[in-house]
Amino acid sequence: MSWRVGTTHRSHYRYGTRALSSYNELRMTPKASERQRVLESELLLEPAAAVFTYRDYWGTVVQSFDVQVPHEALEVVARSVVETSAPAPLPEDGPDWSALRDEDVADRFAELLVPTAYAPFNPNLAGLARGAAEGATPAEAVRRIGELVRSHLRYEAGTTAVTTSALQAWAQGSGVCQDFAHLTVALLRQVGIPARYTSGYLHPKKAAVVGERVSAASHAWVEAWLGRWWPLDPTNGDPVGERHVTVAHGRDYSDVAPFIGIYQGGALLELEVEVVLERLA
């Protein structure tokens, strides 16, 4: 069974004094994969600007543009329509630890097995991760580590910022999905499971009514390598499926940031972000 989902990601930046120019990169176009087909995607900009599109190192579609007219506000609306489905279930006999420790696997995913600024390694975390993985198959360890993260972090918006690391979130015991995802990749990597940070959107309603527009937010979850990429959503523990629209993968948030921008001018006064999802079929 699959869903057809419409996504609208609207960002509105308002500046204190006029911005003279700005340079921006968007990573908002959903990614084609086995469980996801991209039917439509479009971008609306105000002020208007020519968009340059390329694929980055991670295969993510990047839309880049610069605005050279003085502007008090910048509005970016990224829309897409995708068809999503749940991933095929993992085979019962998933890879064992020796398969993951294989030199070829370790080399192929080298950059997804090492710490990053957002997902640092730490002896305490390593101990916890090893404890969770003990006696488990890698697939079971992935599930347990997701639970571990969920049991230690309380979801609370406003307690962390875009720059918060997994360690900081861990120390304070709360965060948002970005922090849940960073902590999960850090733990997985510390037991030798390649893990990547995944950015996208999540439809909040399991029983979504076709045609209803629902307010949501940009979401983050994780994929772990178990012979193939296996997604898990540590923030809520739900299986990743039709409700998840995948946009990008990377080592951490910095590889997939939906919007990066540099501007010259006054201070940023206000940032309004609105994500609306609609199940279309």
Binding site: S11, Y13, N24, Y155, A157, T160, A161, V162, V176, C177, Q178, A181, S199, Y201, L202, P204, A216, A217, S218, H219, A220, D233, T235, N236, D238, Y253, A257, P258, F259, I260, G261, I262, Y263, Q264, G265, G266, A267, L268, L271, V273, V275
Partner: peptide, 13 residues
């Protein structure tokens, strides 16, 4: 100033 614009990913369920 040169500003930097980023959005935290903060969806919940």
């Amino acid at each position: 100033s040169n500003g930097q614009e980023q959005q935290q990913q903060q969806a919940r369920t």
